[in-house]
Design a protein around this nucleic acid. Sequence first.
DNA 1: GCCGTTTTCGGCCCGACTGTTTTCAGTCG
Length: 567
Amino acid sequence: MDKKTIIRTLERIALLMELQGENPFKVSAFRKAAQTLELDSRSLSEMDDPTKLKGIGAATGGVITDLLDRGESTLLMELEEQVPEGLVEMLQLPGMGGKKIAKLYAELGIETLDQLKDACEKNEVQKLAGFGAKTEEKILKELEQLASRPDRYPVWKLEPIVESLELLLKGHKSVQNASVAGSFRRTKETSKDLDFVIATTDVQAVKEVLKSTLDIEEMIADGDTKMSVALAKPERVDIDFRFVSEKEFASTLHHFTGSKDHNIRMRQLAKERNWKISEYGVEKENGAVTTYTSETEFYADFDLPFIPPAVRETGQELDRLDELEGLVQLEDIISDLHMHTTWSDGAHSLEEMIEGCIAKNYQLMVITDHSRYLRVANGLTPERLREQNQKIKELQKQYPDIHILSGTEMDILPDGSLDFDDDLLAELDFVIASIHSSFSQPQEKIMERLYAAVSNPHVDMIAHPTGRIVGERNGYDPDVEQLLQWAKEFDKIVELNANPYRLDLAVNWLERAQELGVKVAINTDAHHLDHLRFMDVGVRHAQKAWLKKDTIVNTWEPKKFLETLQK
DNA sequence: GCCGTTTTCGGCCCGACTGTTTTCAGTCG
């Protein structure tokens, strides 16, 4: 018996109980028990007695004992028998929760989505107490959209929407402040919807602007403090807008940034002081509500340091406050080690990229155009690479304020060889090795290729180590644990590619890299000047993995960084 | 269902909106 199975069993029990219309507190007791196990970093064998943990009582402990003793749970088996499988799917319908689904099953015997559709069309549903004609209509509409709508959107699809909305809102005369909140602000790879918090003196005016500017498919809610819409274009994504006064902005932003678990921990802290947190501020013992000018001030009132949105996830961040100190910040980044120019498939010249990096106040940069194998990207032949190398050395004289390194993003070929020979690599300051081809090779072959790169003395870094595209494709499926072990062994840098398409490595592997003492570089892989801004996304993604400034080589002073390369 | 040194009963994070009601339940975040 493993911990994951126990966690899944407890969660499944909670889900099935919810579908029976059970008391929500009872349901959440099972979820909390699952979470208690999940958040405990020990494995099952390292735990003395999991049923003694806080949050696990007689019933949830019984499930665990059942699983440990017999490998199955009587409670779960009973529930599986009582609750038809089709009910689980109904939870995907917005507006449908456990109570309603339980009622439809109990009174109309509805077990499947098809039966639900049928009953709605025959107007049987609106006859039930608590249901009406509008509910029936809504169910039919949601049933129709169920198949066509993705349940989560990758960050790179949402980013342009967020950017344009923040611009629109901040430019409005009645808006004092506006920010995206929710999982997007926490830098999750994917989000179910978008949340915005808006400080305004004129809710109606702002609502009007939003309504007239956005391509709205459906008005989901339209109240005095909240408006929810489903966008028609460019994505059919739901957006929530919350309107507050300026003084409430900070606490509302905190509230709607979440996560839910982070907020629960904060509310528990408040409770210990007889305070009460709501989105409008913190109610103190005397009943007065304190408001804040910033989230920093909000946290300070609880004697806490500012907790970056990216780490506000499980609630356990509040037990890791000492680790916040050295967490990497955007201001720490003083170099970008991966970018392209018009010499290969970039949109800007060497000079333009150099000036772009100077504008970012970087102290060091590396030009890393593609190698010859990547013909579609106009990859450089050895001759052109040497020519570029020469040109960079000349440009260095013109731009004394920044170290300009001459590098390459060299392909690791499908047969496991490298695109340039060692003599040429030795002439370069910095060598990136990447896989851009034959993704579908078996893992063994992929690892052979990666080993060739990681074990080559001239290679400094492995770029976008898995080749994934967030929410689209998994990449070439390397054994990442092995790759990280090799990176440690050969003292190579692994990349965190900051392009929101990639965010490669993913958070869990970045945590592992730091644990192993592997060096990480956050790079934009810019093919356009505008892409240099992705450093911000990359840093927030790194924060999500609790990466320290010291782990990230592009926070290092040029002297230290260059010495490391020479080793 | 779980918890507890102001508690073994009565809370559990808290509030907004909708659709159903005619004062509130359900859902959502």
